[in-house]
């Protein structure tokens, strides 16, 4: 693909969107066949090569700030439990409803950011929040 037609950042952003789309799809294909915890196990194994490549690039100087490290570890544990629930949902429901429904997690992030980081929502985000609530009700019908 020519980089003249497509700026590099846009190409990467589109690739990110495609890979995550495939993640939802393969999650369904796998969850139909094996248990959520089995799925989560191999899912984690598959993540490691990319993390290892990043660690190599940083020459393994990755331990920096105590607070940063503990937050990141906690992020990983919570995200892992989240994908476990995602695979369990995919086992019993349609990927075409569950992928859009679970992608609404920023609704909680923006709400928590208002509470804990004292962020103020702009009008567009408030509109998005209402759309998220409405869509989850519709998807669950």
């Amino acid at each position: 693909m020519s980089t003249n037609l497509l700026p590099k950042w846009l190409l990467y952003a589109i690739l990110a969107l495609l890979w995550w789309g495939v993640f939802g799809f393969l999650g369904k294909v796998g969850s139909d066949r094996i248990s959520p915890s089995q799925m989560q196990f191999f899912f984690t194994i598959g993540m490691l090569p990319v993390a290892f490549a990043c660690a190599c690039r940083l020459k393994f100087k990755i331990a920096s700030n105590k607070r940063g490290v503990s937050y990141s570890l906690l992020m990983g544990i919570l995200a892992a439990l989240g994908s476990l629930a995602f695979f369990a949902a995919l086992k019993i429901g349609r990927a075409s409803l569950i992928a859009p429904a679970t992608s609404l997690y920023p609704a909680l992030t923006v709400a928590l950011a208002v509470l804990f980081l004292r962020e103020r929502l702009n009008k567009v985000q408030i509109l998005g929040l209402f759309a998220a609530l409405a869509s989850i009700v519709i998807l669950s019908q």
């Binding site: 995200a79 629930a85 369990a88 429904a101 679970t102 992030t109 928590l112 950011a113 980081l117």
Partner: peptide, 19 residues
């Protein structure tokens, strides 16, 4: 049935987003 599991994922991933 899947809704509850999906909501658990939303809550956990939402907290991850904040972190």
């Amino acid at each position: 049935g899947w809704l509850w599991l999906a909501l658990i994922a939303v809550v956990l991933w939402g907290v991850v987003g904040l972190l």
